[in-house]
């Protein structure tokens, strides 16, 4: 038995990779249908958007590129759908050039699946270089930073942008990022203009954002694939209730099941590795 355990603790890399591949693929092929329970930061964001008056505006900043797409894209898509269902107008922009395409994709899904109308039910502003200058500029006048939308239509001609001048007319900003961009939104939009901020972040950076949740500088947050799955699951329930069964998405829910299995396997590897370590140490000492 001891020899077997020591052998088990010296698996080669190929075997580990193979086990992980099977563990990730299996729940994607055979769904586990575990369901999702909202964690407090997700629930706070969901409730905030859910209780906004019809016709309110939320600014969604797709501050990421495709490398973090599996975690962040389902968040953006779920929030766009949630807002459209509630009659809240999402304004989608990006501080990253590649975020524009991902923002368009999320809005396109809402258009095709929910019948959302561009420039009436949602607005795509696109990308603008300048980072902090863009965040600060929106606090003065959004038209000075984005004179037109992504398609080149002046903001003054867009029905959904009527009455929107600066942060005073935007109920919430949600920054989706795999890095530190939500910090910049807190520093420049929250501190200087008092704008309410929330974030969609990758699991690896979630620990960095807890102080901002505790201080209330973030009203809520979606953390990693788990946060995405929780929000997506909740929006799916709403879609079903509103008669949009076909618009349901399971990208994050299924991804989270695969993620959970992968986490278990990693935990198992750590246990096996440690058993082997202690048995080898004991044998050497004997």
């Amino acid at each position: 038995m001891r020899d077997f355990l020591i052998k088990l603790a010296s698996l080669n890399r190929t075997t580990i990779y193979l086990i992980i591949t099977i563990g990730v693929l299996l729940p994607l092929v055979v769904p586990l249908n575990l369901g999702q329970k909202m964690s407090p930061p997700t629930e706070r964001l969901y409730t905030f958007i859910d209780t906004l008056p019809k016709g309110s505006h939320i600014l969604l900043s797709a501050d990421y590129d495709p490398s973090t797409l599996p975690e962040l894209q389902p968040m953006l898509e779920a929030i766009v759908k949630h807002a459209v269902l509630r009659g809240v107008i999402p304004i989608v922009m990006s501080l990253y050039p590649q975020g524009t395409g991902l923002g368009i994709q999320a809005c396109e899904k809402a258009r095709l699946e929910l019948g959302a109308r561009p420039d009436t039910d949602y607005v795509i502003l696109g990308y603008k270089p300048g980072f902090s200058a863009v965040i600060l500029g929106i606090g003065e006048d959004i038209r000075k930073i984005f004179p037109t939308n992504y398609s080149g239509i002046p903001l003054d001609s867009i029905p959904a942008m009527r009455g929107v001048k600066n942060y005073n007319d935007i109920a919430l900003v949600v920054s989706f990022s795999g890095g530190s961009t939500p910090f910049a939104w807190v520093t420049y939009a929250n501190t200087k203009y008092g704008q309410k901020i929330a974030s969609g972040i990758t699991a690896v950076s979630a620990a960095d954002f807890y102080p901002y949740l505790q201080t209330g500088q973030f009203i809520g947050a979606l953390m990693g694939m788990k946060g995405a799955a929780e929000y997506e699951y909740q929006v799916n329930k709403l879609l079903e209730k509103e008669g949009f069964k076909k618009a349901k998405s399971v990208f994050a829910v299924r991804g989270m099941e695969a993620n959970s299995i992968a986490h278990f396997l990693i935990m198992l590897f750590i246990v096996v590795g440690n058993i082997g370590y202690f048995l080898t140490k004991k044998r050497r000492e004997a």
Partner: peptide, 29 residues
């Protein structure tokens, strides 16, 4: 962008899970 760049970049990042599994198995003692 959607069918070439996005999958390529997402795949590169996803490979991390393999390295994490392998590294935690060897080094987390």
């Amino acid at each position: 962008f959607y069918y070439v760049q996005a999958p390529l970049q997402a795949t590169m990042f996803s490979l991390l899970s393999y390295y994490m599994a392998s590294a935690s198995y060897r080094a987390f003692r």
